[in-house]
């Protein structure tokens, strides 16, 4: 499953869906929103937006790249958009493989590729404005 959602990601359901008798490993990567504190103000939450359906298609392409490189029998990538509060999951990657090596490698590959090619953007919403991550453009004083 490769999809973009605007609500809480059910990681447990994604892992359950990846369990197969021919696989001895399921690698799960969950990216969660991290809050950096700095003087005088703090990040209240992150807000994500995506260019759809291009972003959906790019997630599928990453899945196809993984299938070409590793013996991955099940791959799911789910990215959340909209408001994501501190500590919540913004992305979940689940890879099932007969052995652990490929499962670990493929999930690492997926998150690195997401950060390179998937048209999704996040902004940090602070108490005094916001900043687009990567562009460092926003409304903070």
């Amino acid at each position: 499953m490769f999809t973009i959602v605007d609500e809480t990601i059910d990681v447990g359901a994604l892992v359950a869906a990846a369990q197969r008798p021919d696989c001895g490993a399921i690698s799960t990567f969950v990216g969660t929103t991290r809050i950096d504190e700095s003087s005088g103000a703090s990040v209240e939450y992150l807000e994500y937006e995506a260019y759809r359906p291009m972003a959906d298609r790019k997630l599928e392409e990453i899945g196809a790249e993984i299938q070409e490189r590793w013996d991955a029998r099940h791959v799911s990538i789910v990215h959340r958009i909209g408001r994501v509060d501190p500590g919540e999951a913004s992305v979940a990657i689940v890879v099932a493989s007969p052995r652990r090596g490929p499962a670990f490698e493929a999930s690492r590959y997926a998150i690195e590729r997401i950060k390179e090619v998937v048209p999704i953007w996040k902004r940090e919403v602070w108490s005094d404005g916001y900043v687009w991550v990567g562009s460092q453009i926003g409304t903070r004083p």
Partner: peptide, 28 residues
């Protein structure tokens, strides 16, 4: 991007196409 796929400066754009202006992505 042109019609949902990354494109370079020399790539063609025609009436009816959808062009997207994409800052550095920051998903994850």
């Amino acid at each position: 991007a042109v019609n949902g796929e990354y494109a370079r400066g020399g790539d063609t754009v025609s009436p009816g196409d959808e062009v997207a202006v994409l800052p550095p992505v920051s998903g994850g």
